[in-house]
Design a protein around this nucleic acid. Structure first.
Lengths: 134, 134
DNA sequence: GCTGTTCATCGACGTTCGTCGATATCCATC
DNA sequence: GATGGATATCGACGAACGTCGATGAACAGC
């Protein structure tokens, strides 16, 4: 009996480079869901979707990337400035940034040659709410 | 320059069955740490420890277990009542409960033949704080 | 002490994941 | 349109993870 349970579904789109050659990524949609896990029943499907979201946070490199982007002066960071600080190869960093994008935790904006990443505060807030007491 | 960064270290102990045959588990200690990831710099070691914590949440079965325990009438649940709802074998459930214990997310209390699990609210609150704006 | 029950551990298997070198794609500039 | 730089994708490899059957350890009741 959980009146507030709703569907955790994949519907949102994350569009990188709105101009020509736009890439579209499916991201997890937790909007108007995110019932606090401590208060509302959770079925297997919802648990699977939520687990995917937390999986994006379950890697030290991704946490560092998220931190670097969030704590940057302007609120966004060029991908080119993210490779050295985490001490991984460029393909590895690119891979992790993609995971973060698919999880809806960051947005990517391509400007000319460079890609600028910014965090999506609402997504982090949603995950916080899931961990809350409701 | 982050004055509030502190050590994420392994020191806390989780004691199951305080009586004879007590088992001791090392758990991640995030106490007086947990600087908000969006505000304070994060080094590689801290990121690794935090990632371990989120890894515990990054599995659907563990999320269901956490949910079942947290939403139970009394705030605790017998392990024997957790196997059927998640649809996994008893060894698998036992494994996941151990992961949750090592992450400090649940406590285990052995009473006679049965083991009763309860959530550790403060641990979930700490993780919420890490995701917060500070 | 034997039996049945509950829970944890072990060993093995298949899958997923993080990583990197090589390569492809996109773009600005000359 | 050729060149060089920035980023994404591909393919492969090893490590970590989820799962389960079999087994072990702890305990209650007869």
């Amino acid at each position: 009996m959980s009146i507030e349970v709703c569907q955790y579904r994949r519907v949102s789109k994350s569009v990188v480079s709105p101009g020509a050659g736009a890439r579209v990524l499916e991201v997890l949609d937790l909007a108007d869901c995110c019932s606090p896990i401590r208060r509302v029943e959770l079925d297997a499907d919802q648990a699977a979707t939520l687990a995917e979201a937390f999986k994006a946070l379950a890697d030290p490199v991704r946490l560092q990337l998220l931190n670097l982007i969030a704590t940057s002066e302007t609120g966004e960071a060029c991908a080119c400035d993210l490779v050295d600080p985490v001490g991984k190869s460029q393909p590895t960093v690119s891979h992790h940034l993609k995971v973060l994008r698919e999880a809806g935790l960051v947005d990517a904006d391509k400007r000319g040659t460079w890609v600028w990443y910014s965090v999506v505060p609402s997504r982090l807030d949603e995950l916080r709410r899931v961990l809350g007491r409701g």
